[in-house]
Design a protein around this nucleic acid. Structure first.
Lengths: 239, 239
DNA sequence: CGCGTTTTTGAAGCCCCTCAAGTGTAGTGG
DNA sequence: CCACTACACTTGAGGGGCTTCAAAAACGCG
């Protein structure tokens, strides 16, 4: 999915051919990384802007006691830290979960280019908003949903995000997350994740096996989760 | 604190007099709202951009079962939803906690104005980044900190944010949050918040009484929280 | 002063964690 | 082909942190 990123941007704003060309040439030469590789290390100075072409990564923070908390999953078409060059120090790490193909765009010139392109600017703003909505949805999950609802909500989020970039077939998609990774994202233990997944499986709601998520009953899943996907596919407003 | 907003923006980018004037005239006529008033209701269409001049507000979402989760506190100098006009529907509500003086800036023209002012644009980007860092810090708290650490972390965040806009005296500041509100922000119950506060009080770490937070031992508070304030006062990078 | 809200305290219970151990699976090398 | 290793998954038993239910005390505002 080398074009997933530009495809997504185009759903956020009406881009002209030159806009598209700027993005495409910037992403033209992706590099391959193995699984478990840290693209960004916490407390690094800001590096390039990363755009996911293939594979999955996660943003995470490590706590003093050694535990870690994942704060976002990135799949093809997603990107990380558009404007972070304004900062002195980055506040979280970014690691590959699977082998991944990632484009690293040097910031300085790219920023200058998009500054003078209102529609590109708009597309990036819009993307930021969706990302912020996702962060807020995570806070709501961790604060007020129990373990089953929380798992269900994350699966809904990831399913619809994957669908938006054409990564699903009917009610299933590749989800290369171990139970430990899910636990680190949802603030639970791997053991408890395991029990939740069993229960969802036995109830026929969904099944996660060998990196494939098969959703048996999407309506029931969304009902359990209390899922409102509005924050993911905000439509364009008056343009 | 009518000038808190521009003061904050100026720490984010080097603003010229015309930049400053644009912001100041936009915020020139704030309105007063009573406590408990919904400035934004979930599922509203995007309205104006709100800038806090005085008082506190919170962003929150309501769940199907009627519980609510607060996702952010806004104090003087903060603002809400800079670019949200791109969206069709807003994803969370904004309510006053205390009586508040708030400037409501119509979006359309304001956006056009800042689009052509690179330094203003930078200041807003920077602000967005800090807000995102704060959201991620909340996720980390809810996922991997216990109730005491969580309370301690929030108090650290609010103390340093308040200090950044000159709202503190030595190790104390006005914090008009009830235990119920704290519970809704931290994903706990008011009863448990009460017990945590008692313990922190008896340990001499901090005391919250009649809307005043007195920090007895800031170092111990930060240690309990595992607080790293980097995400709040990102310095300017090469400008 | 009186009333609603907030704070405080107690007691019982549940959700999720911790500790522990066993099963399955993929990759490596003999 | 099988032993060996590493890692992910699975299951059980017991414990603790936070919740729920219940009620009293304190505060703040008309």
């Amino acid at each position: 999915m080398p074009g997933a990123f530009i495809q997504k941007l185009r759903t956020y704003a009406l881009l002209s051919p030159p806009d598209i060309k700027i993005v495409n040439t910037a992403c033209a030469t992706p590099r391959d990384f193995p699984a478990g590789y840290d693209l960004i290390k916490e407390s690094d100075k800001p590096g390039p802007l990363f755009v996911m072409c293939e594979g999955w990564t996660c943003r995470y923070q490590t706590l003093p006691d050694g535990t870690r908390q994942i704060t976002a999953f990135l799949m093809p078409g997603d990107c990380c830290d558009i404007y972070a060059s304004l900062l002195e120090k980055v506040d979280s790490s970014l690691a590959t979960i699977t082998p991944a193909r990632v484009a690293a765009i040097p910031r300085a010139d790219f920023e200058l280019q998009i500054m003078n392109r209102p529609m590109l600017l708009r597309a990036f703003w819009h993307m930021q908003l969706v990302d912020q909505g996702t962060l807020r949805a995570w806070i709501v999950s961790m604060g007020r949903r129990n373990s089953i609802q929380r798992v269900a909500h994350l699966m809904c989020e990831l399913y619809f995000r994957a669908r938006n970039v054409g990564l699903t077939t009917t009610h299933q998609f590749r989800l290369p997350l171990t139970q430990t990774i899910l636990a680190d994202a949802l603030g639970l233990t791997p053991i408890h994740i395991n029990r939740v997944l069993r229960r969802l499986r036995l109830d026929g709601v969904m099944e996660l096996r060998s990196s494939l998520l098969i959703i048996g009953d999407i309506n029931r899943l969304a009902l359990i989760a209390g899922f409102d996907g509005n924050y993911l596919h905000h439509r364009l407003h008056d343009m």
